[in-house]
Each structure stands twice: as C-alpha cells, then as structure tokens.
C-alpha cells in the first residue's frame, strides 16, 4: 500500500463515516426481515454475504416467501439493481488504474452511500492510488459494518415470536426507499403505474404481471420526463 493510497483511505473513511452509521438500522432490519421470512441464521448470513445489497435482499424476500419462480426473483433483483449500472459507469474512469481483481472487489462493495459521497472528489483527484484508497477503504468499512449489524439483527430475531410478523419490516423498508424517490413527478408516475399494474395483473401466469408492471412503470416515467421537458421548452 503506497502512502498516497493510505492518505486517500484516511480521507475517504473520514467523509463516509456519517453515511456508514446510517447503514446500521438498515442492516438490523434486513437481518430481522430475513429471519422473519423463515431463514435460519446460516441461510440469512449466507444471503447477506453473497448478495450484500439491501434493496435486492428486501425486494426478493416477499417473492421467495410466496414461492415465486426463480427467474422472476432474479429479474426483480436485477431491475432494482439497474441503478448500479449507472453508478458503475460513473466510477469506470476514476478506478481505471486498478487491476482487474481489485476492480471486481470495487464492484462487489459498491453502495449508494459511498458512491454519492465520494464521486465528486474522485472525478477531480489526479492520483489513481489516492482515488482507489478514497473509494475502497470506506466501501470495505461499510461492508464490514453492514455484515456485523446484520448478524446482530439475525441473532436478535431468533428470540422474537413468529406472530410479530417481522417480515413486514421488509415492506416498510421498501416504502422508506420509495417515498423520497417519488418526490419527482415522473418518478411518482413510474411508481404508481408499477404498483397499480402489479395489482391489476396479479392473475397473469408465472407472475408475469410484475414484470409487465415494472416495464410499464419505466416507460411511464420516461414518457412523463419527455412531456415535462417539452412543456418547459415551449
């Protein structure tokens, strides 16, 4: 580890500390919800380590519990994670100096919080070693804090009776993510379209209705953005 990597790491850790603390309640809730869905402690921690993504984990739990087909579970997780493709594209240039193995690691530990906090500085900083430390150190710290907090949630959930319906915490968590997104009009339209169609089309075979609802929601949001832009232009 070069001195500039360490300097970047220290600075990245410092700026991301507040964001990382915000992960603790999420991780606890995710741990509780996985046990609420009927997972053993080993299964829950297995999912946490393999997936390491709150939205994908919480979003697929209701589908796993309902016995949805595997392809639908995987495609749903992929759709909620599509935002990471955009984040990944933004990070491609700042992290271009690292080896392929390190870049895979950078991908695995990519989270919304560190991305949002570090991107501006990553774009401006000329030293590749410094940039890698600045991104990787807080990301690894967040991953560690996430797994430890999830474990606490998983172990705590073991002493809670099934009748408390802890799995509903997954639905609350998804709502908490959704509400700030829906403050933008086109985003609200995407959510309303997706939610309404998922209910109306619930009778479609293989739960295809969920997929149709998501695609229609994306199309509605995209179309609304166009109209908004055109109206603003005239």
């Amino acid at each position: 580890m070069s001195p500039s990597f360490r300097a970047g790491a220290r600075e990245g850790f410092r700026v991301c500390l507040p964001v990382s603390v915000g992960l603790i309640p999420w991780a606890l809730v995710t741990g509780l919800a996985m046990v609420g869905a009927g997972f053993t402690a080993v299964q829950a921690m297995g999912m946490s380590l393999i997936v390491f993504g709150a939205t994908a984990q919480l979003g697929t739990l209701p589908l796993i519990v309902a016995g949805a087909p595997l392809w639908l579970i995987v495609v749903t997780a992929l759709v909620v994670n599509l935002r990471f493709v955009i984040f990944s594209a933004a990070l491609a240039r700042p992290l271009a100096g690292a080896g392929v193995g390190l870049r895979w690691l950078c991908g695995y530990v990519l989270t919304d919080g560190v991305f949002a906090t570090t991107l501006e500085r990553l774009r401006r900083e000329p030293d590749p070693d410094w940039r890698l430390g600045y991104y990787l150190a807080p990301s690894l710290w967040c991953a560690l804090l996430w797994q430890v907090s999830t474990l606490v949630g998983v172990l705590a959930a073991g002493s809670v009776p099934r009748s408390w319906s802890l799995e509903f915490m997954a639905s609350i968590a998804l709502l908490v993510l959704l509400v700030p997104m829906a403050k933008l009009r086109p985003m609200l339209l995407a959510a309303v379209t997706g939610g309404t169609l998922a209910v109306l089309l619930r009778g479609m075979p293989l739960r295809l209705g969920v997929m149709v609802a998501i695609v229609a929601g994306i199309a509605a949001g995209f179309a609304a953005e166009h109209w908004q832009a055109r109206r603003a232009g005239t």
Partner: peptide, 27 residues
C-alpha cells in the same frame, strides 16, 4: 451506454419497488 438508456434506467428502481410493495399491502 446510450444517453436514452441511462435515462430510462433511472425509473427502474421506483417502478420495481412499487410493483413489489403495493400488492403486498393491498391484497
């Protein structure tokens, strides 16, 4: 990725989260 694809992708999480959570709470 083309600009249009990047723009459309921004709506995927909201549409998907709603499509999962709304049926769960109204059915």
């Amino acid at each position: 990725l083309p600009e249009g694809v990047l723009k459309a992708l921004r709506y995927a999480p909201a549409a998907a989260l709603a499509a999962i959570v709304v049926p769960d709470v109204v059915l």
